[in-house]
């Protein structure tokens, strides 16, 4: 009887662990979606990347993103672009850039790849007002 109880307890613990693991890992973002190009350091509470587009001009990747503040208060955003070459290797590291978005403001961020070798990118964003959860 004692062994049975022990087995039951172990089983319950395992299933609880599995359940937690499942809830912690959100499904991967759809390829071609904004989220697939976004890296949030904690889910932003009031800021959204509402539009994102990229084009190649003069051999250089040109990216434009639109950030929307859905709050009635000013919001602080820090962002940087991560440029990646065709083999998936990162090309250097940019510095974080600060940006203040006024209440309900939409701001456009533009960036040009530092080198023609950049074929892909990720936009890394961090808002001081975030939920603290995994995005």
């Amino acid at each position: 009887m004692k062994t049975f109880n022990k087995a039951l307890l172990t089983g319950m613990l395992t299933s609880a662990c599995l359940l937690t693991a499942c809830t912690n890992h959100a499904p991967p973002p759809q390829p071609g979606s904004i989220n697939s190009k976004l890296e949030q350091l904690g889910e932003m509470s009031y800021l959204q990347v509402s539009d994102l587009k990229a084009v190649k001009r003069n051999h250089l990747l040109f990216v434009q993103a639109e950030i929307t503040n859905t709050d009635d208060d000013n919001q602080q955003l820090f962002y940087r672009f991560k440029w990646v070459d065709a083999s998936g290797f990162a090309l250097g590291e940019e510095a974080w850039k600060p940006l203040v978005l006024y209440a309900y403001q939409k701001q456009t961020l533009s960036a040009v790849a530092p080198s023609p070798q950049a074929t892909d990118f990720k936009l890394e964003v961090n808002s001081t007002d975030n939920t603290g959860d995994r995005p």
């Binding site: 071609g32 979606s33 904004i34 697939s36 587009k53 990229a54 084009v55 190649k56 001009r57 051999h59």
Partner: peptide, 17 residues
């Protein structure tokens, strides 16, 4: 060299929300 004049522009990739 790429032809001068208009910028050498490729198709725009728009990411869906």
């Amino acid at each position: 060299a790429p032809p001068a004049g208009l910028p050498n522009e490729g198709p725009v990739t728009r990411f869906t929300p």
